[in-house]
Design a protein around this nucleic acid. Sequence first.
DNA 1: TGACAGGAAAATA
DNA 2: TATTTTCCTGTC
Length: 282
Amino acid sequence: MQKRSLSLPNRIVTRGAFSLEKTLSCGQIFRVFREGDLHYVPLRNSILKILQDGKTVYFDYSGAQVLGKDLKKFLGLDHPVDKIEEQLLQKEPRLAPIISFSKGLRIVNLPPYETVISFIFSIQNSIPVITRKLNLLSEMAGKRVELDGKKFYLFPEAQDLRRLSNSEFARLRIGFREKFLREFLERFTEEDLEKMRDLTFEEKYSVLTSIKGVGEKVAHCIMLFSFSELSAFPVDVWIARAMEKLFGMKGTAKKITCNARKLFGEYAGYAQEYIYYYIRNT
DNA sequence: TGACAGGAAAATA
DNA sequence: TATTTTCCTGTC
């Protein structure tokens, strides 16, 4: 640990509970490459290499420069987790064992363009399948960047995705999701999505669900993981099962989203991620 | 090898 | 408006 952290020249000190492992392994982000306790993550124009040792996070990068503040933003280290936990417990005391189990998990902040595509891929697909297909897409159209003598691929840019041939799309084997992807590529660039940051929650939801392949659940994932809308509450099959088992909350996904947001309030998204991590790891 | 897992859109009531 | 059916690939 000591020796390896020496090869990582940058460091930040975290405040409040933080677990790099939990944060990167709970389905928010698909393309993470692990070597022991080292995590390699393609992010925008860089490959990040991250290692946590207690309260300190060491990092290095290849490609575009990454500052400490960029890493903090990416890992949700600017979120007031003490206040969030306190507020959630006040609203629903039954969260206590769940928060205790999931403590340290943060909600990440990812590039929205990449996140839309990732969650279009996620429709009716398991995490390992989504990861594999996103890696294939990145290898087909993304820029290659080396770090520690290893090859990584950045997530492709809109202009490169638009140049993919029919046979390359076919190689992805994403079935009915292919027409959603192609329509999205035609309609949007990275900038179009970045510009949405200033919209209200409802306005973002409305634009996102106008994209074919983006329904209620996927829209909430995008709002939570790339626009830091911390009250978003995506409901997939796991969350639906968990909400019934843990809180007796039943009904359609739409109803659960609505009721859970009322119950948990402005940090409902944190409750959702804590519950998701808990239900998938117990 | 056939049953099953996994969300959104389209069709239907 | 609410419920049911269809879409496709991968896994066990």
